[in-house]
């Protein structure tokens, strides 16, 4: 319950900042303010600006045949508009090939849009001078746990990012310790990554990003290669980072159970964002989700089927506990 309350408070605060911004915008268009005021306004807007924003973001790649002629042009991302606020937990869903990973790679300036713009922390990712700042603002965790750990000792891997940023040695040690603590892997600091389980490796990878003190972490299918307990470990870690440390989280996944905790869910298909809303809003549309090659948690599916059978249940039930409470109400009337 506590989680829900917290989440509501968060959405409220972002709604309020959006409101004030609108008001100030109005006065700006009326041309009644001085240059100084305008400057202050601009700064304020930058502060309240989303941490990750995009406008008509499009990414095309061309497939060439052996002679170098263009065979086909494929739009992996097609006109996506995003506005993600600091502290939010965002989930992006979609089947394989829906463009969600391509979109994620734009948030770290690994890919640059062919059309449209992506801003990370207010900086246009196309501006080369901000490249490293952008990569430090939005850290990235990838799918394969083995292929993103660089060092042969856990703590040295966590230190890799800060080393690249030129952080002084003593501070690196502090950051490594605090990051390993945040993912609950401190006791493994001197271990070899080869001996860890998949979930543990992913937590080390997360610590490696946390040590760079990012404002936002983008996780590109971090659980796709893990077993259920590994998946659980990773999601718990990510949620704690979001709730305790206030890090903005963008989780890309096709496991529906993992997005139940998100503030907002985006569903992608064919490079476009086709659905968005709270998990409850999204999961109440079981048929639409199925059309996008996605499934829903068992609890949601069962509730939806019962509803079809004429049982009076609310839309978008997310967990078995919720369903149990609702059923008990119906049965014990």
């Amino acid at each position: 319950m506590w989680n829900y309350a917290r989440r509501d408070a968060k959405t409220w605060s972002s709604a309020i900042t959006g409101l004030t911004l609108q008001n100030e915008d109005k006065s700006a268009t009326m041309g009644m303010i001085s240059a100084r005021q305008q400057c202050r306004l601009y700064r304020k807007r930058e502060q309240s600006m989303g941490i990750i924003q995009s406008s008509k973001l499009t990414f095309e790649y061309t497939k060439k045949d052996e002679e170098g002629n263009i065979e086909e042009v494929k739009r992996a991302v097609d006109g996506v508009d995003l506005d993600i606020h600091p502290g939010q937990f965002i989930a992006i869903l979609g089947h394989n090939g829906s463009g969600k990973s391509t979109l994620a790679k734009h948030m770290n300036a690994i890919l640059l849009p062919t059309e449209g713009t992506m801003w990370v922390g207010g900086k246009d990712t196309k501006a080369e001078e901000y490249l490293w700042e952008i990569r430090q603002t939005a850290g990235m965790v990838f799918q394969n746990p083995d292929n993103q750990i660089i060092a042969s000792v856990v703590e040295e891997d966590v230190g890799f990012g800060p080393e690249n940023l030129g952080v002084p040695t003593l501070e690196i040690w502090d950051r490594v310790e605090e990051s390993l603590k945040a993912v609950d892997m401190l006791e493994y600091r001197r271990h070899s990554p080869n001996k860890l389980s998949g979930g543990q490796k992913q937590r080390v990878a997360i610590a490696g990003v946390v040590a760079m003190h990012p404002k936002c972490i983008v996780l590109d299918e971090p659980t796709a290669m893990l077993d259920p307990s590994g998946r659980h470990e990773v999601i718990r870690t990510v949620r704690a980072l979001n709730e305790v440390e206030g890090v903005t989280v963008i989780l890309i996944t096709h496991y529906m159970e993992e997005v139940v905790w998100a503030d907002r869910v985006f569903v992608m298909d064919d490079g476009k964002i086709v659905m968005q809303g709270t998990p409850r809003e999204i999961f109440s549309q079981v048929e639409t989700l199925k059309a996008y090659r996605l499934d829903v948690p068992q609890a949601t599916l069962l509730a939806w089927e019962l509803k079809h059978d004429g049982v009076d249940l609310p839309d978008g039930i997310l967990t078995m506990d919720e369903l149990k409470d609702e059923l008990v109400k119906r049965i014990c009337q």
Partner: peptide, 10 residues
């Protein structure tokens, strides 16, 4: 079914 999306798993 490891690593596949829901449709692929099905």
């Amino acid at each position: 079914t490891a690593g596949l999306d829901p449709r692929g798993r099905l």
